[in-house]
């Protein structure tokens, strides 16, 4: 894991310093890499294709991300390919570290206090995504309200659905039951489908560019899939909504806010709230971007108020 991150970081740096041809679209119009690997904002896809490739170009991105929410820490990294400003393909690995405090509390609750200590654990998940721009030009169509529209899918596969939670002595009283399963999730994999409409209004607010995005997501995921997919008594897809509002305050700076609704299928300990964030993204050039955000996830199991900082670095090549 650490090795992979270092590799990825090294990769970013190499591309940052050595690679001149990052595609010819205008700076910042590739968005940043969201925590699921899809280009857009931090928590929601946009209709823009990753990277800066035009209709004649193929370009790639690589990213590393870090989200710290007290007893939960999400690290994630991945890469994407933007093909002819039409198709985006991406892979992302997410790793959610859960502290022993949280697992201990879960055991304590499940056993009425009989077991009060457990080891920390980690949930790994792989995401493979595709996005296709279907219509519009969100940057250069300025005489009408017409946004750029893209559709996409994110296939998510758990790697720790069956990972036994261990007690300090190494025993596992609930064999082959990972966190997601204990909390009531039914499936270890799922596919989200989404449609995003994105538009950049040039010179819109006292001459500043305003970006708006609305995404509808068709999903079975519990907490983005990190807590599995569907539940024993609810196996149906639901529509969730996501949005971004951002202002380009300089050629290299974007500030904005985002939201993302969740289904709250599992309820109980795993109750889901609407996610919000406020971010600032820095695009010093077309090779590299850095984003910092304050994220509020609401409830996570045994942590009713989960807020923290999110950092994303994306390299373009």
């Amino acid at each position: 894991m650490i090795k992979a991150i270092l590799f990825c970081l090294g990769f970013c740096l190499i591309s940052f310093f050595s690679c001149a041809n990052t595609g010819s679209r205008l700076t910042a119009t590739g968005g940043i890499t969201g925590f699921e690997g899809t280009a857009g904002g931090g928590i929601t896809p946009w209709a823009f294709i990753s990277g800066y490739g035009s209709k004649e170009e193929i370009n790639g991105t690589a990213n590393v991300q870090y989200l710290h929410l007290n007893d939960y820490t999400l690290t994630t990294f991945g890469a994407s390919l933007g093909i002819y400003d039409r198709i985006e393909l991406s892979v992302q690995r997410q790793s959610l570290d859960i502290s022993s405090g949280i697992t201990s509390n879960v055991f304590s609750l499940l056993t009425d206090g009989a077991i009060s200590a457990a080891q920390s654990t980690r949930i790994d998940m792989d995401i493979v995504s595709a996005k296709v721009k279907v219509l519009g030009d969100g940057v250069f169509t300025q005489r009408s309200w017409m946004p750029q529209v893209a559709v996409g899918a994110q296939y998510k596969k758990h790697r720790d659905f069956d990972t036994t939670l261990l007690l300090p002595d190494g025993s596992g009283p609930l064999p082959n039951q990972g966190v997601a399963r204990i909390l009531g999730a039914k499936d270890d994999s799922g596919t989200d489908f989404f449609v995003s409409a994105t538009k950049l209004y040039l010179g819109h607010i006292n001459g500043f560019n305003l970006l708006t995005n609305l995404t509808a997501r068709y999903t079975k995921a519990n907490t983005f899939g990190l807590l599995g997919f569907a539940s024993e008594n609810d196996d149906s897809y639901k529509v969730e909504w996501e949005g971004s509002l951002a202002l380009l305050t300089s050629p290299s700076t974007v500030i904005g806010v985002e939201f993302r609704t969740q289904t709250n299928r599992l309820g109980g300990l795993a109750e889901e709230d609407t996610v919000t964030d406020a971010f600032i993204a820095y695009f010093p050039n077309k090779s590299f971007s850095l984003t910092a955000a304050y994220v509020d996830l609401g409830n996570l199991p045994m942590q009713p108020s989960s807020t923290g900082f999110y950092l994303t670095a994306t390299a373009n090549f």
Partner: peptide, 26 residues
Amino acid sequence: MSSHLQKIRITTAAIALLLSMLGGIS
């Protein structure tokens, strides 16, 4: 409950911040 309230407060603050910026600018 308190987390809900806090969340709403933070969300409102974030949106208010942006709107006031937009408002200020316009």
